[in-house]
């Protein structure tokens, strides 16, 4: 990046009301640090308890999704280039918007798409029902994931999840997810 472009980059984050952002590897320590910073920010902003908890819950689930996803990637070449992910947190007019971006292998696209579609087709009571059903019947994966993350995110957001896939090459796509918490 040219030296003067740093200002443009800064300006664009500022104009988008981004209060926190990170691009890099999603390690366990990073998760800790990110959550800690967000808690401090929300204290500063006097965010009420319900919204504060929802924002943090959504962040925990979405960042842990990225963490587990990155961890599961075994193809070294893909791993080397693509294990980084991006997260942005915007705060504007009392609304938090959490945006994440990460590479995903094309062969797992369909499964993810169908889960997103399912979650978006349900209202809040139905989401609660699905959460209960899966909580009772799903078993934890080796990584400790319960397959409940997206459902939980949708429940806390109370809105449809906004998402988009950009095909990068034959093997991978970039998954963009946007979650609003009012």
């Amino acid at each position: 990046m040219a030296l003067t472009n740093i200002y443009k980059f800064f300006r664009s984050l500022e104009d988008e009301h981004i209060i926190l952002s990170f691009k890099g590897d999603f390690t366990s320590d990073l998760l800790n640090a990110f959550l800690h910073l967000m808690e401090a920010k929300m204290n500063e902003l006097n965010v009420d308890l319900k919204q504060r908890k929802r924002v943090l819950n959504v962040l925990i689930e979405s960042l842990q999704n990225l963490y587990h996803h990155v961890e599961s990637n075994n193809d070294f070449e893909i791993k080397k280039v693509k294990e980084t992910a991006l997260v942005l947190v915007k705060y504007f007019e009392n609304k938090f918007t959490i945006q994440t971006g990460n590479f995903i292998e094309n062969n797992s696209l369909n499964e993810l798409k169908s889960r997103l579609k399912e979650v978006n087709s349900l209202n809040n009571d139905e989401l609660r029902g699905l959460y209960k059903l899966k909580l009772e019947n799903n078993t934890l994966s080796v990584k400790g994931t319960a397959g409940l993350g997206l459902i939980d995110i949708a429940r806390k957001s109370k809105r449809k999840l906004d998402y988009h896939f950009i095909e990068v090459d034959e093997k991978s796509s970039f998954f963009c997810l946007k979650i609003v918490v009012e």
Binding site: K53, L56, N57, I60, E61, Q64, L135, E136, N138, T139, L140, G144, T145, A146, L148, G149, I151, D152
Partner: peptide, 13 residues
Amino acid sequence: LEYFNTSSSKCIL
């Protein structure tokens, strides 16, 4: 509990 994640929710159950 103040917060718990979905991984914990299964273990709590």
